[in-house]
Amino acid sequence: MDPKQVSAQEKREHADPHEQAMSIPIPILILVALMVIFGIFYILAGDSSTPPEYGDQRTMKDLMAKAASTSDSVDGAAIYTARCVACHQATGAGLPGVFPPLAGSDWVAGKPEVIAKIVLHGVQGTLTVNGTAFNGAMPPFKEQMNDVEIAAVATYVRKSWGNAAPPVGAAVVAAARTETASRTEPWKGDAELAAMK
């Protein structure tokens, strides 16, 4: 085709667009100013010096979306759901032959420092619960939870699914933590725990 020939489609168009010289509208300038002020405020409000390994400063408590400033407001049920339910189940009945029950367990209802020590360090090896031997492993939680949280979850376990043992105080957990501070491995099942019962 002849390069000079103009097709019908090209003939009927407008000229290629140009720009006119209207200045920037005032509301846009105000928007720019407001955004810069916001940026300054946000940088000042955000704590940029926190070590990155904290992962942007959010903790378990933030994610649970509940203000948990005092020990009373730590929710044992929430902690149970987050950390225990996978093995011991929502009913507290465990899995027969695999994970021991908490409902009606003599270990749970016993001395408060025993349940505290088990949660702190976990268990490895054969453990007899209500006459049935379980050969499993429970991880330690001393790094993951503080005394208040362990007390809250232990209290929750001791009053749920028909259990009716008195609450566990944070002080009991703190004492158990201090007493067993040198321990680095889980309790060796009945071999170590039976004596404490």
Partner: peptide, 9 residues
């Protein structure tokens, strides 16, 4: 068929 209004924008 209208030019862009604002070169500054």
């Amino acid at each position: 068929g209208t030019p862009v209004k604002s070169y500054a924008l």
